[in-house]
Design a protein around this nucleic acid. Structure first.
Lengths: 149, 149
DNA sequence: ATGCAAAATGAATAAATATACAATATGAAT
DNA sequence: ATTCATATTGTATATTTATTCATTTTGCAT
């Protein structure tokens, strides 16, 4: 009912859900028994510094102030694995991990022995995955889902 | 004009000005002799991860994707000497260093947060630098000059 | 309690941003 | 060169978000 509780709820909802619009957040709030109008929500978000950014995969997402850069979970599904972001470039897949995690993740990929994946090179927090020629991006992403799913 | 130049201009303008709306950015672009529509700009911004956030004092502002903040360089300039050779191969730049130096050099490149560079992978004495799709070799080399020059 | 000022809110609307669609350009393969 | 696929872009529009204005609530000093 009061403002303080509403702000706390908003923060929690934004942290736990991939909220893409204020309308969507309003629904969640209503589901939690707290409702207000979009106007109020807009003001609340500004006050808390919660802004609409990108989820790293072409979508929008509201982000908390501190870490308004990196996708925290929006990778194929496996946040349990240390993959924080993926980007296709030059026909290869760049996989980002927290510092130090790349070798472990790369080893897991290598050991899967998938035909679609020619090989990987791991740095400290980045893995370069080189697909076999003629293999589609989608096929590789399917592989990863299999390996980590 | 071409897309690559437009993206680079956008990044520069957003970095150097406190842009609050896309319309405003369009004006700046036109002033720089590069024009497009708001629709195209919206798409460009999404692609580059440049989103509208807050300036910390109640106002709005477009912000570049955050890069990791770095403590100061222990030995400035040392990395430049650590590059012993560079070769383009398969659309990527292979950078050779003395054994053990690759990670330090790669970190410096990463921290520059340049749009042109999608990412790097460092082994022990070799770095694989992957340009973002559509960025020319020359543009990447300019980047490196900026970073190390 | 009463009155007053400041804060909070909603309804309506303005402002800003994203997208559907159609057209054009670019590139790869034949 | 021709075809086909894909990418890029603008126009028009839809969607989303911010703000204005009026009203209500809250806190505080009488």
């Amino acid at each position: 009912m009061n403002r303080e509780q509403r702000l706390l709820l908003i923060e929690r909802l934004v942290r736990q859900n991939a909220v893409t619009t204020q309308e969507e957040l309003l629904m969640l709030m209503e589901g939690a028994g707290m409702k207000c109008t979009q106007a109020t929500l807009s003001r609340d978000l500004r006050q808390m510094g919660i802004s609409r950014g990108f989820d790293g995969r072409g979508g929008y997402r509201y982000l908390l102030p501190e870490r308004r850069e990196e996708p925290d979970e929006p990778v194929p599904g496996r946040e349990t694995e240390a993959i924080t972001a993926m980007t296709w470039a030059k026909g290869m897949l760049l996989i980002k991990t927290p510092p130090g995690f790349a070798p472990a993740v790369a080893i897991k990929i290598d050991r899967a022995g998938r035909y679609e994946i020619a090989g990987t090179v791991a740095g400290d927090d980045t893995i370069l995955l080189i697909p076999r020629d003629g293999v589609s991006n989608e096929a590789v992403e399917e592989c990863l889902k299999t390996i980590f799913g």
